[in-house]
């Protein structure tokens, strides 16, 4: 099934690239407004980032980016349709116009930014690659993994980092490459591999899906920089700005102390000019982005600020219990930093 799907995606690319028009500034926003929803490419099931709950609603940190964009454009965060994509399918789906945004824990790299006709709009999660092993192996550091069999997901930067790391440390390994993260996790459980490698956030997410999560540990080494963020097609700067500033609005809101509970009140009565500009009480910043005046109010009201989204999906309020770490605000020791609205 996976094969059929990815082949279809590829054929669609060929067909769409071949016959249809192409991205022009403003084309995506027009198309999105005409069809009435944002088509968003997400992961095929990654707790905390994008997954469906028992009612079939999609939740997660990556999903929140899509919802924020919908809230900004339509004033309604539910006007999103989701396309779950494997790592292999994701870029073709975006290039071919099948999705408007790709928000699928995708690492920002130079070749992806420059050679694929894509643009990264920002970083919604600073991650790094790590290793998950069974406690029974008695391994406490990645340096002890000489000769190990390693499970990976195909078509990811992790595949390349893994070989870089083992080569740099003079270690040998056998890679077993699967299409989906579920398959690779299943394989580790079955003992086909000694190690599962992926971005650390994913390892924590996959660990809670295993039958006995307590038998597995994530090793301390982080072997790469993985800035994960939403991606759009190159050539439509207007849409690029909308996606980028929807994310910035969430980060700015957290920094300014605006959250989903106090946002309406703040929009009316704030004395802080920064907050007033963000929430549209002062100036015409929404108009510059071709968005309604209250775009940021809708984002924060319906989706929450970045901190709320983080806590709810991957942080203390979730099963994953990931620390803020690099993803804390810049003034709290982290890297999350958004340019000001003015």
């Amino acid at each position: 099934m996976k094969m059929v799907k990815s082949t279809l995606a590829m054929l669609t690319t060929a067909a769409v690239l071949g016959v249809s028009g192409f991205a022009q500034a403003g084309a995506t926003l027009d198309a999105v407004q005409k069809k009435g929803f944002v088509q968003c490419g997400i992961s095929d099931g990654l707790p905390g980032f994008s997954y469906a709950d028992e009612k079939g609603n999609y939740l997660g940190l990556d999903v929140d980016v899509c919802r924020a964009v919908a809230a900004a454009v339509f004033g309604d965060a539910t006007k999103v349709k989701y396309s779950p994509l494997t790592a292999k399918e994701r870029f073709t789906a975006l290039q071919s116009g099948e999705v408007d945004i790709l928000s699928r824990n995708t690492t920002w790299t130079s070749s992806r930014d420059a050679a694929l006709g894509l643009n990264f709009t920002g970083t919604n999660y600073y991650d790094g690659q790590g290793f998950l092993v069974n406690k029974k192996l008695g391994v406490s550091s990645a340096k002890e993994l000489d000769g190990a069999t390693v499970c990976i997901q195909a078509g990811t930067t992790t595949e390349l980092n893994l070989s870089d790391y083992f080569r740099a440390n003079g270690l040998k390994y056998t890679p077993i490459t699967y299409d989906t993260s579920d398959e690779s996790a299943k394989s580790v459980e079955a003992g086909r591999c000694d190690v599962l490698t992926s971005d650390q956030s994913q390892l924590y997410a996959q660990r809670i899906k295993l039958a006995n999560p307590d038998e597995y540990v994530v090793l301390p080494e982080v072997i790469s920089k993985e800035p994960l963020g939403p991606v759009v097609r190159q050539g439509d700067e207007e849409w690029f700005d909308i996606v980028r500033w929807s994310l910035f609005a969430m980060v700015n809101a957290e920094e300014l102390g605006v959250d989903s509970k106090n946002v309406e009140e703040q929009a009316k009565s704030t004395k802080n000019p920064d907050v007033a500009r963000l929430l549209g009480a002062e100036g015409e910043f929404g108009k510059d982005l071709k968005l309604p005046k209250d775009w940021a109010v809708q984002i924060v009201k319906q989706v929450g600020n970045y901190g709320e989204s983080f806590e709810r999906n991957v942080g203390a309020g979730s099963e994953l219990k990931i620390e803020r770490g690099l993803n804390a605000l810049w003034n709290k020791g982290g890297l999350q930093y958004a340019p000001p609205v003015r």
């Binding site: 790592a87 050679a115 078509g155 990811t156 595949e159």
Partner: peptide, 11 residues
């Protein structure tokens, strides 16, 4: 699979 994804040269 892998090569397509690492290079993005789908066609």
């Amino acid at each position: 699979g892998t090569v397509l994804n690492q290079t993005g040269q789908a066609i």
